[in-house]
Design a protein around this nucleic acid. Sequence first.
DNA 1: ATATATTTTTGACGCGCGTAAATAAATGGC
DNA 2: GCCATTTATTTACGCGCGTCAAAAATATAT
Lengths: 343, 343
Amino acid sequence: MSQEKIRNMDEFAALCGISRPTISKYFNDPNSVRPSTRDRIEAALKEYDYRPNIYAMNQNRRLTKNIGIVVPYLADPFFAEIARVIERRCIDAGFTPTLFSSHGEPGQETAILDTLRSLRPAGVLLAPLGRASDRKHIEEFCRDVPTILFDSNIEGVGAAFVGSDNFSFVSQTVEYLSRTGSAPCFFEMRDPANPNANKRRHAYLEMMRRLNLEPHLIKIDGTGWGFEEIGRTGALKVLKQDLLPTDTVLCSNDRLAIGVLSACHELGIRVGREEGCTIRIASHDDHPYSRFTCPSLTTAAHDYEAVSDHAVETLFRLIEAGGRLETREETLFAARLIMRASA
Amino acid sequence: MSQEKIRNMDEFAALCGISRPTISKYFNDPNSVRPSTRDRIEAALKEYDYRPNIYAMNQNRRLTKNIGIVVPYLADPFFAEIARVIERRCIDAGFTPTLFSSHGEPGQETAILDTLRSLRPAGVLLAPLGRASDRKHIEEFCRDVPTILFDSNIEGVGAAFVGSDNFSFVSQTVEYLSRTGSAPCFFEMRDPANPNANKRRHAYLEMMRRLNLEPHLIKIDGTGWGFEEIGRTGALKVLKQDLLPTDTVLCSNDRLAIGVLSACHELGIRVGREEGCTIRIASHDDHPYSRFTCPSLTTAAHDYEAVSDHAVETLFRLIEAGGRLETREETLFAARLIMRASA
DNA sequence: ATATATTTTTGACGCGCGTAAATAAATGGC
DNA sequence: GCCATTTATTTACGCGCGTCAAAAATATAT
């Protein structure tokens, strides 16, 4: 590696003995230049370690290679994991993804979208906060920037939605639980921030109706994204007052369930389907930690890979199509029941 | 809000009735223009919703307002949380932070640094992978870009290091455990990826020497960043073979401890300091989930706020000083013992 | 060898803004 | 109302690269 620092493409082109426009062409698509030319450029690249200035590149390109990824809450390992997979897919496809977290705050979400505008991304993968989102602001953003929604849908907004089929989650857990023991009650937040929660409640009610069982909704108080703590305090209250209508609790999501497990432990209530256990707990999402809870959590798993892959692929199609799809697509992936010790 | 789309600063300046250089000055520092001028600009800003093109701005500025934040593993809520705090501080100071995760892979880490170069950041906050990091590559990067290391130190690399005082963590847990029960053994990975782990082991040995107690190291196999699973399988092995020298286990970090708790539960071993419990488990970090484990985890907590604040403040000083500090500073913050149910 | 298709080079322009120097205008104190 | 000071404007140039059209060079087919 030579010591000399190359300042710009002109200097690099001169060192290659190739014209600058050809170098420019190479960087936009190495396969667009003749193999012999490509070899000469790549040899020089090893020698001098030059990289074109991103800002100058993106300024003039009609379309950047940027992709924005927005998740509602990165401190939730579920979103951290799905963001990781999506990031990798984008990099492999030659894009430069940038990851943002709304940190559970609608203000942050709109601020991120504003920032994203000036990044001039080719496309955006957005998992909205949900109910708290500023719908109008997101709608406006989607009009200007090709955007795929994932995880949490906003009807009619964005070019497509990719997520999980909430009915598939709940139908499997309800069916399993009521087949192997008493029918579950449904444990959830009173005002869930995420629209998936509402869909899961409806799915629960529908499933109980089909099975001819009496539904029980347990709605607990709490706001924000500290679901474990909300689940814990809510469960403590319910359990202490002995308000549980059945010995089987189906939580809306794993993070709530982690809180419920914690409350049960505090109160000395044994959870599981073994002998000596007085309560069964199950849930949805297959959160990365749910296999390490005590007891390990029976849950319905997202098809992470399928959701990530399909969201990214749809975005690429959208970008290639110039930012518009004929119709707004909605794709839902089925869940997989994961039987562990808690139910 | 008017409908007309403004294409560039010239158009916006014309609509304001103010010259473009003055507008440019305003965007670089709103306080650098006369209040009456500022008001006119801001009135027009509301009217027309113009934002300068980031790429054109950064291209010519000697110093961008970009800050890079790199953490080793974003799916770990510990890093997600610290990244969140740091991000906020940067935004409040008028910078544009960009968050990257090395995803536990050295290749990713070097790739991120390469990407960061072309972002021309004013400064970078880097939490290296640790032992697996490509030291030379990071060193070279730090020569070109003002960088503060945090969480995990690499001797002599970067302008400063900000982290937690591992001795403070371990001395408190060891002191507490041996005062309230039998002395702890130390549970850790055989080849820890993170240098903090080594410091913690040394601190344990030193503390046991001072207290005149016999140390026991339990080294378990496993590589990568799936610490919970590594802790779980390691603990299962140790517990099944009854290799535990004491009834008190001090884990190197909370994620390992979560795995150990999981193993204990599987084997029907009751953990805690209550009657009927046969083992105590404590740990270090105060991982966001450690209060929801069953039982809740006694641990030593990082001073998240102090570490984040000091890291960011040091970076700002570094940037203002033109990228060089007189001497390489190393700042360590003490831990706080959090007594919960597990020990 | 010649004609045709493909690739590269040349030269030129523009992107949107930073920045510097010189000039003009506004402000503030007396 | 005058002068010194601060602030704004004008003018001009440059950043590093994308992109286009026309000309030149090269590769491929006949």
